[in-house]
Every structure is written in structure tokens, then in C-alpha cells.
């Protein structure tokens, strides 16, 4: 009873103490929190708000509330549908290949062989090239008759006629994926290499003593250990691949026809070429929702991995 009485008595004091202690902390944190909200929550809400208006930047006075009008229109817009579909194909295709190649490269670079440091540094070059420069260079490399790729494939007798890589929907999409893979596989390899370097050596030694084969070591020790690094790479790369703009803008500009149109390019054209800011906001909002649906479970899984550790 006495205990109960004490507890009942102490509770308000504890709450008071707690709130007294928290007040300065809250005030000190407030500017940072406000800043964070102003650059994240406010743009998000403004995007949502704008998406309910018919608004053209060149004629701001004609802004009109149209409710879900922009959303109704975008689901009927063939370019938007194609943009979203292509974005899914591009993002999953590019990131999938990057993960496989990145893992292989990381495993090779993890070997204690001569020249690996130099190779690691050279491997980072594509990442350091400005994306638009990379895209335009690739465009020239792939465009016959002056593109080197077709020229050398012909010289080597691999093909008879020049291939117009950017001339069909399928090969243009493959070219865009190849450009992204070239650009960002080193990034994936670097993350996974960091993971490999931090593997516990005692487990590897124990496996070796027990006579485990290489593939068994990879499947039962390396891969589970790399899981969280793989998740980090997948999340970061998926987000970036979904937002890819420079690659498509510089390499195909959505062509041939509209066959490589990505959602980011649709938003750009609506917002910055036609200045239909309300419609562009609605597309961007749906894009954001789609990206959240895809990445949220991955981030949850990553947090779980870290917590389990």
C-alpha cells in the first residue's frame, strides 16, 4: 500500500521533472526540426496542394481549383502510363544487373591480388563523370555511322550491318539500362566491397578448417553477411534509378517515338516546357507514392536487419 501510495505521489513530480528537463531540449531542437520540416514536409504538402489546381506558370492569375481533375486526366494520358511502365522496367532492370555485376566485381576486388587498388580507383571513373556528359558520349558511341561501338563490332566481323542501337524501342531501352549499369555498378561494388572487407575472419577460417567449399562459404557466410549491404545498395539505387532523368534526356530523349519515355521526363516536359505546373505536380505526386510503395518495405527490412544484429 505504501509503495502504491509513493508511486501515486511521485508520478506528477516525475512528469513535471521530465517536462522541465525537456523544455530547453525541445527549444534547442526546434530550429533544426522546423528547418527539416520546411524542406521536406512543406514541399510535399505544397506539391499535393498544387496538384489540385489547373495552373500554368505563364498565366498564374488563371489558377483554378479542379479537385482530382489532374489525377483523372493523368490516368488517361498514354504518355504518363508509358512513362510509369518504362520507369519500372528501367529501374528494376538496371538495378538488378547492377546488383549481380556489383557483387561479382566486389568479390574480385576483395581478392588480395596485385594491382587491385589501382583497378578499384579506375573502376570509380564512370561514377565521377557528369551524367549528361556520359549520356551524350554514349549517344555518339552508339549512333552509326560515326559511333565506335558499331564500327568495331563490324571491324571484328561480329556484325555485317551497323546496328542502330537507339533506333528500336527494345534496343534503346537496353542502351539506357547499359548506360546506368556502366555509371552506377561501381557504386554498388564499392558498398559491397566495404561489406566484404568487414566480414568476421574467424567464421571464414572455421569454415576453411571444416573443409567448406568456396560456394558454400559464399552462400552460408558471405551472402548472409552481405544482406544488409545489398539492401542498402538496392534502396539507394532504386530511388536514384526511379528518378533517372539525365540518362534518358541525353541518350534517347524518350525515343524512338515515345518508347523510352520515363516518368521523370514526362514531369519535366509538363512542368518546364509546357509550364502546366498543376498537372506536373499530380504526376510527381503519384510518382512519389509509387516510389514509396516500392521502397518502404525494403527500408523496413533493412531496419529489421540492423535491429536483429
Amino acid at each position: 500500500m505504501a509503495t502504491l501510495s509513493t508511486r501515486t505521489h511521485d508520478a506528477p513530480i516525475a512528469r513535471k521533472k521530465k517536462s522541465k528537463m525537456n523544455a530547453p531540449a525541445i527549444i534547442l531542437l526546434a530550429p533544426a526540426v522546423l528547418l527539416l520540416l520546411s524542406v521536406t514536409l512543406y514541399p510535399f504538402l505544397y506539391l499535393l496542394y498544387t496538384s489540385f489546381f489547373s495552373q500554368n506558370l505563364m498565366n498564374p492569375s488563371a489558377k483554378a481549383w479542379i479537385g482530382f481533375g489532374n489525377y483523372a486526366a493523368l490516368f488517361k494520358d498514354a504518355d504518363v502510363i508509358r512513362g510509369f511502365t518504362n520507369t519500372l522496367v528501367f529501374a528494376f532492370g538496371a538495378v538488378g544487373i547492377q546488383m549481380i555485376l556489383g557483387t561479382l566485381i566486389a568479390l574480385i576486388l576483395d581478392k588480395d591480388l596485385p594491382g587491385m587498388k589501382a583497378i578499384t580507383i579506375m573502376m570509380l571513373i564512370p561514377m565521377s563523370i557528369t551524367p549528361i556528359v556520359g549520356a551524350l558520349t554514349w549517344k555518339y558511341l552508339l549512333t552509326p555511322p560515326f559511333g565506335w561501338v558499331g564500327y568495331y563490332l563490324q571491324k571484328l566481323g561480329i556484325i555485317d550491318q551497323p546496328i542502330v542501337f537507339l533506333g528500336s524501342g527494345f534496343s534503346a531501352m537496353m542502351s539506357m539500362i547499359a548506360l546506368d549499369v556502366w555509371n552506377w555498378t561501381p557504386f554498388v561494388a564499392l558498398i559491397l566491397l566495404a561489406g566484404l572487407k568487414s566480414r568476421p575472419h574467424d567464421q571464414l577460417e572455421a569454415a576453411s578448417i571444416d573443409g567448406a567449399r568456396r560456394y558454400q562459404v559464399f552462400i552460408y557466410i558471405t551472402l548472409p553477411f552481405l544482406k544488409r549491404f545489398i539492401l542498402i545498395a538496392v534502396v539507394l539505387r532504386l530511388i536514384e534509378a526511379f528518378k533517372n532523368f539525365t540518362g534518358v534526356f541525353g541518350l534517347t530523349n524518350g525515343g524512338p517515338g515515345n518508347s523510352t519515355l520515363l516518368a521523370s521526363l514526362v514531369v519535366y516536359r509538363k512542368a518546364l516546357e509546357s509550364f502546366q505546373i498543376g498537372y506536373a505536380a499530380a504526376i510527381a505526386f503519384i510518382f512519389l507514392i509509387l516510389l514509396s510503395i516500392i521502397t518502404t518495405p525494403l527500408i523496413g527490412r533493412l531496419q529489421k536487419e540492423i535491429t536483429n544484429d
Binding site: 551497323p162 542502330v164 537507339l166 534517347t252 525515343g255 524512338p256
Partner: peptide
Amino acid sequence: VPPGTSTFSWTEAGTAFGS
């Protein structure tokens, strides 16, 4: 026309003639 013309813009057309 040179192969690859289906992707040509001002730039590629100018480069092809200039080369």
C-alpha cells in the same frame, strides 16, 4: 541516308555532313 538517321537531330546531321 546514313544508318542511324532515325535518331538524328541537328547535331547528328551536322556531324555526319561535317565528317
